[in-house]
């Protein structure tokens, strides 16, 4: 029975703007990640996936505020913890977070090894320079980074190399969960591939317990994660395995999203890309009913009136719609 390393129950967080308005960015999100598994979070800009990543760490600072829900890491409930405690005991050791353009975290005036010394000393200030160097060298070797990187300044490294360095550093303490938010989107395709390969290897070798990968690029998720969660307007609208999510999506939004994937593969030129008109709703005043209703091709009057919950199917699959699986499949067949 694989251990659940991360369990989130009904997490709700919001932003409070300087004029006092609330933006409900993450709305009753629940998810589970087991040891050795990876979860992908897909969605477009503004859906709340980056906010979800921040919220999962338990490290809140204005204007992001925690509202309700639980975050349990390997049995330990960290929701509502004081930010300082979170920083000392959770960040880095239990959860590691790699934000977008993480390579900018490297101090341009320090050599990489000095940066690593800082990181380790925070959590283990007894470690000597020798020990730290040894740890760093071993880790870099394992993930395929050359030892010479340790003695370089960030400006001497390429973008891809910097990103891989930061990712390696963030797993130094062998966290249970690694949250990567668009780790490769600022890079060229070759560097992107290297970063992806490295992240997969980290998970495979057990250097991280589990992985949460956030991106808007679906082909990446398909190749990296076991399961995919699709987010829209702060809510989860579909949960499925990667294969199911990409090739057999149930929620109308997921279906539209998967239908707009472009890959340079044979047969793609004949396929008609789907387009979804409209824009996501304003999260300052989220609609009462289904949040996708105004853009949905299959919308019915009931969709607008009542809030829609997640429908759970067997195998851990779920989607948020008032229609049953059979009804949806019928509707899709008819176009």
């Amino acid at each position: 029975m694989p251990t659940t390393l991360l369990e989130v129950r009904e997490l709700t967080t919001r932003y409070i703007t300087r004029f006092g308005e609330s933006v409900y960015a993450v709305d009753h999100v629940s998810l589970k990640v087991e040891e050795g598994k990876s979860l992908g979070i897909a969605g477009e800009s503004g859906c709340g996936k980056s906010t979800l990543a921040l919220s999962l760490m338990g490290y809140y600072f204005a204007p992001l505020h925690y509202m309700s829900g639980q975050i349990i890491i390997d049995g330990r409930n960290i929701s509502g913890m004081d930010p300082d405690d979170v920083r000392k005991s959770v960040l880095g050791k239990e959860i590691a977070y790699i934000p977008q353009a993480a390579m900018n975290a490297l101090n341009p005036t320090q050599k990489v090894i000095n940066f690593i010394e800082d990181v380790i000393r925070v959590h283990d200030y007894g470690a000597t320079k020798q020990q730290i160097y040894e740890r760093a060298r071993t880790l870099f070797e394992r993930v395929g980074l050359p030892e010479s990187v340790l003695h370089k300044y960030p400006v001497e490294l390429s973008g891809g190399m910097k990103q891989r360095t930061v990712i390696a550093i963030s797993v130094l303490l062998s966290p249970k969960v690694l949250i990567a938010d668009e780790p490769s989107s600022a890079l060229d395709v070759t560097s992107q591939k290297m970063v992806i390969k490295m992240i997969k290897q980290l998970l495979h070798d057990g250097l991280v317990g589990s992985l949460i990968f956030i991106t808007h690029e679906l082909p990446l998720l398909y190749n990296v994660t076991d399961d995919i969660m699709v987010m829209y307007a702060g809510q989860i609208v579909e949960k499925a395995t990667a294969r199911e999510a990409v090739f057999d999506p149930l929620h109308p939004y997921s279906k539209g999203l998967m239908g707009s994937i472009i890959v340079p593969e044979e047969g793609l030129r004949e396929v008609k890309l789907t387009a979804i008109p409209g824009v996501p709703p304003n999260l300052k005043k989220p609609p009462l009913g289904c949040r996708f209703a105004e853009r949905c091709k299959y919308v019915q009057p009931e969709c607008i009136v009542n809030a829609v919950g997640l429908r759970n199917l067997e195998g851990g699959r779920a989607y948020r719609c008032i229609f049953s699986e059979a009804e949806l499949r019928e509707a899709y067949k008819n176009g």
Binding site: V189, T190, K193, Y222, N223, V263, P264
Partner: peptide, 19 residues
């Protein structure tokens, strides 16, 4: 060839060993 290989695929196998 390298450029095409480095793009993630969904219908074909995406070979990660080339980097």
């Amino acid at each position: 060839k390298r450029l095409i290989n480095d793009v993630p695929k969904i219908y074909e196998e995406w070979d990660l060993s080339t980097v």
